[in-house]
C-alpha cells in the first residue's frame, strides 16, 4: 500500500467517524429531554461536523481527483464509508446516546492527543484544533454517564443496558490493519491497538463511579473502519443525510 493510499483511508476513517456520529447526534435536535440537553447535543454535533470538514477536506486534497469535502460526504455510498460501526448505531434513548458518546469521546480524545504529535503537520494541526473540542465533549459525556448511571433505578438500568448493547462495538477501535502499519511506521498516527490500555483506564474510572459493570467479553463487531461490512443502519442514515444532493445534484443555497 502506498503512503498516500494509506493516508486517504486514515483521513476517511477520521472524517467519517465525526460525520456519521455528528449526523446521528443532530437527530436529537428539537427532541432532547430538556432544552439544555438539546442545545448541548446540537453543539456537540456542530463541532463534529466542523471537524469533518477538515478531515475530509484533507482527504479530498490527497485523493487529488478534484473532489471536495462535501462531495465525499454527500456522494459516496455506504460501502465507501470508513466510520466505526459504533458511530452509526441508532440513538434509541437518551441514555444510549450518551453512552455511545462517552465510549466514542474517550477513544477520540486519546487518539487526537496522540495525533497532535503526528509527523504530518496537517494532521497535527487538525488534531490540535479538534482535541480541545473532544476533551470538552468527554467532560460532558462522562459527567452525564456518572449522573445517570449512579442516578435512579430506572436511569441506572437504562445505562447498564446501553453499555451491554454497545460494548461489542468498542473493540473495533483497536483493530490494526495495513493502513495502520504504514502510518504508524511513518509516525503519522498511533497503532490503534496501542491505545487500548489508556482507554480501559478511563472507562474503568468513569464506569465504576457510575456504578456500572463493564461486560466481561472482548467480542468485537467489525467491518466499519475497513469498509468490509457496515450495519443495516448506515444506509438508512445516508438516505436522510444525502437526500438533497441526490435529488438535486449540485444544489446550493
Amino acid at each position: 500500500m502506498t503512503f498516500d493510499a494509506a493516508m486517504y483511508q486514515f483521513l476517511l476513517r477520521m472524517g467519517d467517524n465525526t460525520l456519521i456520529l455528528g449526523h446521528r447526534v443532530s437527530e436529537w435536535c428539537g427532541h432532547a429531554p430538556v432544552l439544555e440537553e438539546d442545545i448541548a447535543l446540537a453543539n456537540t454535533a456542530l463541532d463534529l461536523i466542523g471537524q469533518t470538514q477538515m478531515w475530509l477536506g484533507l482527504a479530498a486534497e490527497i485523493e487529488d481527483k478534484g473532489q471536495s469535502a462535501d462531495d465525499l460526504a454527500f456522494l459516496r455510498d455506504a460501502w465507501d464509508f470508513r466510520n466505526l460501526l459504533l458511530c452509526e448505531i441508532p440513538n434509541e434513548d437518551f441514555g444510549r446516546t450518551l453512552m455511545r458518546q462517552f465510549l466514542f469521546d474517550t477513544w477520540h480524545s486519546i487518539q487526537l492527543g496522540h495525533l497532535t504529535k503526528s509527523s504530518d503537520e496537517r494532521v497535527a494541526a487538525i488534531a490540535a484544533k479538534a482535541s480541545k473540542e473532544a476533551a470538552y465533549h468527554l467532560e460532558r459525556s462522562a459527567d452525564t454517564v456518572v449522573g445517570l448511571g449512579d442516578g435512579t433505578e430506572e436511569s441506572h438500568n437504562r445505562m447498564q443496558a446501553a453499555l451491554d448493547y454497545l460494548w461489542p462495538y468498542v473493540g473495533e477501535m483497536f483493530q490494526s490493519d495495513d493502513v495502520d502499519v504504514v502510518l504508524a511506521k511513518a509516525g503519522v498516527a498511533p497503532d490503534p491497538a496501542s491505545l487500548r490500555e489508556e482507554y480501559d483506564a478511563v472507562l474503568l474510572r468513569v464506569l465504576s463511579e457510575a456504578t456500572l459493570t463493564i461486560p466481561d467479553s472482548r467480542f468485537a463487531h467489525k467491518g466499519g473502519r475497513s469498509g468490509a461490512m457496515h450495519t443495516e443502519h448506515l444506509g438508512h442514515l445516508l438516505t436522510q443525510m444525502q437526500w438533497l444532493q441526490r435529488a438535486y445534484p449540485g444544489c446550493q443555497w
Binding site: E36, E37, I39, A40, T44, D47, Y136, R140, D143
Partner: peptide, 13 residues
Amino acid sequence: KVSQFGSTPCKAH
C-alpha cells in the same frame, strides 16, 4: 452551571 453548552459553540449556560 446549568449546562456545558449555551447559545453558541463558544459559550456555556
